[in-house]
Design a protein around this nucleic acid. Sequence first.
DNA 1: ATTCTTGCAAATCATTTGCACTTTA
DNA 2: TAAAGTGCAAATGATTTGCAAGAAT
Lengths: 133, 133
Amino acid sequence: MSTTEFLRERGIQPSQQRIRIYEALAATTAHPSADTLHRELQPEIPTLSRTTVYGTLELFVAKGIAQRLALTGSELRFDANTSAHVHFRCRSCGAVSDLPGISAPLPPPAPAGYRVESAQFYAEGLCPRCLSL
Amino acid sequence: MSTTEFLRERGIQPSQQRIRIYEALAATTAHPSADTLHRELQPEIPTLSRTTVYGTLELFVAKGIAQRLALTGSELRFDANTSAHVHFRCRSCGAVSDLPGISAPLPPPAPAGYRVESAQFYAEGLCPRCLSL
DNA sequence: ATTCTTGCAAATCATTTGCACTTTA
DNA sequence: TAAAGTGCAAATGATTTGCAAGAAT
């Protein structure tokens, strides 16, 4: 399915900017920030503004086709993989990746009175590259 | 054990500021931000600066007597409870609490090549108070 | 005396907002 | 031609930094 169709199906008007932002996000597992995506797309779409990237990513999250990850407190990272998986952040190089070979623990059952709408599992430590230095 | 002894045992010089910041953090389950703690202690210690609160909380995290929670991307919250438990953030009122009656899923086994040093489980949804409105 | 701790003011950095311009249905 | 989408510049808000003053060993 084309990105255009995919977005339209989710009720998202497929503008050139949105198409390229979604494709760039879906093409990586690096969990980029809005700013990183902006820098990446700048050469291709020189007029693309930060505002559009920020707004578009929020739209994707609202429509359920992207996840927003608050890992460091200073920046938001995004992920087009919305399935349950464990995020890992390396304390040395800061890279965010998915922990391979591990199925994320299921979200806990909601205690009475609560409505749990989403859940995330997040681990921190040293990645293989930094561990071997 | 007094807070003074407690801090000294962890290799933290127990200054008046540090003692009061730790006691304020340990006395609540509201997972306050540095700024919230600063406002809370201001009447009691009028000269207390934000810088000191920020630095002290980072020190507590480094020494392992507090947890740093990045939940929203815009602010860091802190927790003197360092045991494994599930954090919950209400999408409506923004309050951060511990999910009661639930033991946190264990951290996943580290895949080969990784060193996992800490893990957090984080859920989002509606709290009982907002759900009943 | 020397080292650790604190506080102030200014700087930084990601993100948001207000508003005008442009594109699309 | 009305509505939706985009972009720029300025504002915001949490956090950090540089550095001088104060407290503790």
